[in-house]
Simulated scan of single mutants.
Amino acid sequence: MSYDTEHVRNAGETPRTITNIPAFTELLDNTDLAALYTSIRRAGTMTGPELVETTPVSKKTVYDYLHKLEQAGLISQVGDDAGTAVYAAEEFELKLTVRNTQVSVTPELVEIVAHEDEYPAIQRVLDDSGLVTFALAHDLVNAHSEGDVTIRQMAELTGLSTGTTYDLVEALYSILDLGDDNSAATTYTPDDFDDEESNLRHELFDE
């Protein structure tokens, strides 16, 4: 796997290069760190004391994580509340390339990683198939929710078994709140492959 560090950038209005790549990669491997970053991003802004109250890790760990994320350029101090630092999450994109397949790691993917302990399918795909396959599957789940690909096509493109693909889709539908009250991953019935579907992998990877 190659980490295209030249393109690991803050994706805001004034992009900055993300520093400290080890801290960044830990964000993808440490569910507590991913959850803390996601909490800040979801809330818009948060302080250390607020995070201590809402996260399951110790006070010391919260502040260690805040320091690590700030040093890596993944969060920044945006204000002061009665002497307490106020933090906001930075947007970013990391491009990963493996065997000529390129996928992007984004805050949305980090949010999924934060749920790894809750959904065995997420942990199974990450452990058995790696981050690139997981990131590709994440992209395809969004396409699946729009009716653009089937479970069977997703399995073909990612190399996952149909059962694992289905379990992963079900998990991500739940986390991302995809569909509406009357729909879920189970409502999309895969069609049989036709002659054009053999070109789907090439179309995705050539873009």
Results as ranks from 00 to 15, higher is better:
residue 84 T to P: 05
residue 41 R to Q: 01
residue 10 N to H: 13
residue 143 A to M: 11
residue 159 G to M: 09
residue 100 N to T: 08
residue 85 A to T: 05
residue 59 K to N: 11
residue 75 I to V: 14
residue 37 Y to F: 09
residue 4 D to A: 13
residue 18 I to A: 10
residue 61 T to M: 09
residue 134 F to P: 05
residue 9 R to Y: 10
residue 50 E to I: 05
residue 17 T to E: 12
residue 132 V to D: 13
residue 164 T to Y: 08
residue 25 T to M: 14
residue 129 S to V: 03
residue 13 E to A: 15
residue 117 D to E: 08
residue 49 P to V: 01
residue 64 D to A: 15
residue 17 T to K: 15
residue 195 D to Q: 07
residue 133 T to A: 13
residue 24 F to E: 00
residue 92 F to Q: 04
residue 101 T to P: 01
residue 191 D to Q: 11
residue 197 E to M: 12
residue 161 S to I: 04
residue 192 D to P: 02
residue 139 D to K: 09
residue 38 T to L: 04
residue 22 P to F: 01
residue 107 P to I: 10
residue 110 V to F: 05
residue 99 R to P: 03
residue 177 D to N: 08
residue 27 L to D: 07
residue 206 D to C: 09
residue 19 T to H: 11
residue 133 T to R: 13
residue 203 E to C: 07
residue 127 D to H: 15
residue 21 I to L: 15
residue 105 V to P: 01
residue 70 E to R: 14
residue 62 V to N: 01
residue 202 H to Q: 12
residue 149 V to W: 00
residue 21 I to G: 10
residue 145 S to E: 07
residue 47 T to Q: 01
residue 155 A to R: 00
residue 39 S to M: 09
residue 93 E to V: 15
residue 120 P to R: 13
residue 169 V to Q: 10
residue 153 Q to I: 06
residue 5 T to N: 14
residue 110 V to Q: 04
residue 20 N to I: 12
residue 94 L to I: 04
residue 78 V to P: 08
residue 109 L to T: 03
residue 140 L to W: 02
residue 12 G to E: 13
residue 57 V to N: 05
residue 112 I to Y: 07
residue 200 L to W: 00
residue 113 V to E: 05
residue 182 N to M: 06
residue 136 L to A: 13
residue 51 L to D: 03
residue 172 L to Y: 02
residue 56 P to M: 08
residue 119 Y to N: 09
residue 26 E to F: 11
residue 89 A to E: 00
residue 100 N to Q: 12
residue 143 A to V: 07
residue 78 V to F: 12
residue 80 D to F: 14
residue 134 F to Y: 08
residue 69 L to Q: 06
residue 169 V to T: 07
residue 149 V to Y: 01
residue 102 Q to T: 14
residue 114 A to N: 00
residue 120 P to S: 15
residue 151 I to G: 03
residue 14 T to L: 12
residue 45 T to W: 05
residue 89 A to H: 00
residue 163 G to K: 15
residue 114 A to R: 01
residue 32 D to L: 05
residue 77 Q to P: 05
residue 32 D to E: 06
residue 107 P to F: 10
residue 168 L to Q: 04
residue 113 V to M: 02
residue 129 S to H: 15
residue 97 T to Y: 06
residue 114 A to W: 00
residue 199 N to Y: 07
residue 138 H to V: 12
residue 186 T to R: 10
residue 169 V to C: 10
residue 180 D to L: 12
residue 127 D to E: 15
residue 123 Q to M: 10
residue 145 S to Q: 12
residue 161 S to E: 05
residue 58 S to R: 08
residue 153 Q to R: 03
residue 12 G to I: 10
residue 49 P to H: 02
residue 74 L to D: 11
residue 41 R to K: 06
residue 1 M to V: 11
residue 8 V to C: 11
residue 4 D to F: 13
residue 64 D to H: 14
residue 152 R to F: 00
residue 68 K to L: 14
residue 130 G to V: 04
residue 109 L to P: 01
residue 1 M to C: 14
residue 63 Y to R: 13
residue 18 I to S: 09
residue 131 L to S: 03
residue 165 T to E: 05
residue 58 S to D: 06
residue 116 E to W: 09
residue 189 T to G: 06
residue 13 E to N: 11
residue 171 A to N: 03
residue 158 T to I: 06
residue 177 D to E: 14
residue 206 D to Y: 12
residue 121 A to P: 01
residue 6 E to F: 10
residue 119 Y to K: 10
residue 22 P to K: 02
residue 159 G to K: 08
